[in-house]
Computed example of a mutant assay.
Amino acid sequence: MRQKVGIAIALSKKAKALLLDEPTSGLDPKAANEFSNILIELAQQKTAILMATHDIFRAKEIAHQIGILNAGNLVSQVEAASLTALELEELYLQTV
């Protein structure tokens, strides 16, 4: 519930940037899907979104750029459109 309230506050203030840490954690599949659609809409409206997540498939669905961290270091950065979800999963598994 805290995640939803935080997002609602950011939306009501028309934030220019969102910093999200595992934003779909604890959400049921329907709410996670709705949240993803909101993020896509915000990105189209030029809101900057930086999201840390272990959900690489949702990241692929939402992101323009994907970075993979290992021990706090950026070890890979790719354009989301340049990889399939399975290729992204393989890259993730290779780098961590």
Rank of each mutant, 00 (worst) to 15 (best):
M1F: 15
M1P: 15
Q3E: 06
G6H: 02
I7L: 14
A8K: 01
I9Y: 02
A10H: 01
L11H: 03
S12Q: 06
A15M: 04
K16Y: 03
K16R: 13
A17V: 13
A17L: 09
L19Q: 04
L20V: 07
L20F: 10
E22R: 02
E22Y: 02
P23V: 01
T24D: 01
T24C: 04
S25G: 10
S25I: 08
S25K: 09
G26A: 09
L27P: 10
L27C: 06
L27K: 11
D28S: 10
D28W: 03
D28L: 06
N33E: 15
S36I: 05
S36C: 12
S36P: 06
I40D: 03
I40C: 05
I40L: 14
E41N: 14
E41A: 13
E41L: 10
L42I: 04
L42N: 09
A43N: 14
Q44D: 15
Q45P: 11
K46Y: 11
T47G: 09
T47V: 15
T47W: 06
I49Q: 12
I49N: 13
L50Q: 07
L50K: 12
M51P: 11
A52E: 04
A52H: 07
A52V: 15
T53S: 15
T53M: 09
H54I: 05
D55N: 14
D55E: 13
I56N: 05
I56V: 14
I56D: 02
I56S: 07
I56T: 06
A59D: 03
K60F: 04
E61H: 08
I62M: 03
I62R: 02
I62W: 01
A63D: 08
I66L: 06
I66S: 03
N70E: 10
G72R: 04
N73W: 10
S76D: 13
Q77V: 11
Q77C: 11
V78G: 05
E79H: 12
E79F: 11
E79C: 10
A80C: 07
A80K: 05
A81T: 11
S82I: 00
L83G: 02
T84L: 05
T84K: 01
T84M: 02
T84G: 07
L86Y: 05
L86R: 04
E87Q: 12
E87W: 00
L88R: 01
L88G: 00
L88T: 01
E89R: 03
E90G: 00
E90L: 02
L91S: 02
Y92T: 08
Y92E: 03
L93F: 00
V96L: 08
V96S: 06
V96F: 13
